[in-house]
Design a protein around this nucleic acid. Structure first.
Lengths: 205, 205
DNA sequence: GTATAATATGAACTCATATTCATTATATGG
DNA sequence: CCATATAATGAATATGAGTTCATATTATAC
């Protein structure tokens, strides 16, 4: 009997998997999925090319894993942040704030999710769409609650939700590609104001 | 002496080039750039694979041509529509209306420009960015004119312009991928209202 | 109809890269 | 230290797609 799985080896392998994922996130963000070869990936992760296949069945499974993990991270952070509030507007703002923060901090995540994923394949387009719709649905739900409370005027909540998500997406992407403005904080506040006005917030005043 | 270029052959070749471009637009929209092989493209255009290379130096040049042509088409339509108005708000609305119409009518154009192009390569990302910025700049200019006339409140016109473009992009894409709503006209009007409110239109009233 | 010059063809070629696998290195238990 | 089981290696292989080119087809001029 020899070489039973032990704590040490398990941790070592877990670390190696992490290394692969880290390299993948960076390279996919920088060069795109097609533009990233397994050889280059292995080189970046400081392992042999064949080793990648000990951890992932193939390249497709790797990008799937990376994308799924990213969304999971994002959803978890948002859910945790929303828990802190009960008021509808606060929850909505919390979602927006945290998305913005995460994407600005984790630029590789932003570039992969917002730029690279749609171009990978039609199946990824569909996957992305499903998850984007998840965000839109949440936003829509927030808006409908607020409408019921009489804090927002009548209006098409679906259109509003999509518009809101889209405006943030575009601004985020702009900063990501073109560089941040001098005063990011103020720009972000203006963007929020834009959307609050768009929603008709304060309509009764 | 024999076989000088003649009207008939020129037209025939022009037609063939059109066929290739048409097939490319459809396949790129449906399967993406990477997902479209020259073989499949030639098959769709009903020519031999080698023939493609009599009209385009390589695959890259073909997609470049397709994308450039699409933007040219879009810009031309927008410019013509804007000419019809002098009022700032009318011009802004004309741009938005025509973009929406064109993208909804020419779905392959919309899918290529809005979904496929960003993922092709970093050089395409940059190209797209340049052109998107062209739209943002126009919008920004419209907004600044309106601000000077006192018809819009103070505010960050760049952020507003990006937000406006982003909200329309997202709604368009939603309809494109998920299917149009029952009442497209009303949804579109609501979207415009959302953005007009966002801009602070009617703030003095 | 024939000669000629250009276009069209598609099998063959090239090249890149994802994946495999025989070999080597490493870890464990006794 | 040895036996063995697992992980790691990277050269070799398989695959697929972009591109080329010898050949065939088509169009023109006489």
């Amino acid at each position: 009997m020899a070489y039973r799985e032990t704590r040490r080896t398990q941790e070592k392998m877990a670390q190696k998997k992490e290394d692969i994922i880290k390299a993948a996130r960076e390279l996919f963000a920088e060069k795109g999925y097609q533009g990233t070869s397994i050889k280059a990936l292995a080189q970046k992760a400081k392992i042999a090319t064949g080793t990648v296949y000990l951890y992932f069945a193939n390249k497709e499974e790797l990008i799937q894993f990376v994308v799924d993990e990213m969304f999971q991270e994002l959803l978890t952070v948002i859910k945790n942040e929303r828990k802190k509030y009960t008021d509808g507007f606060d929850k909505l703002q919390a979602s927006i704030d945290v998305c913005f923060q995460v994407f600005l901090k984790e630029r590789t995540m932003a570039k992969i999710l917002l730029v690279q994923v749609p171009g990978i394949s039609t199946s990824f387009q569909k996957k992305l769409l499903k998850i984007e719709n998840e965000f839109v649905r949440w936003t829509k739900k927030d808006l409908e609650e607020l409408k019921l409370e009489g804090r927002l005027p009548e209006g098409d909540t679906l259109v509003s939700a999509i518009a809101l998500v889209g405006s943030f997406r575009q601004v985020l992407l702009h900063y990501l590609m073109e560089g941040e403005p001098k005063d990011l904080e103020t720009a972000f506040i203006n963007l929020k104001k834009y959307n609050l006005r768009g929603l008709g917030h304060g309509h009764e005043s």
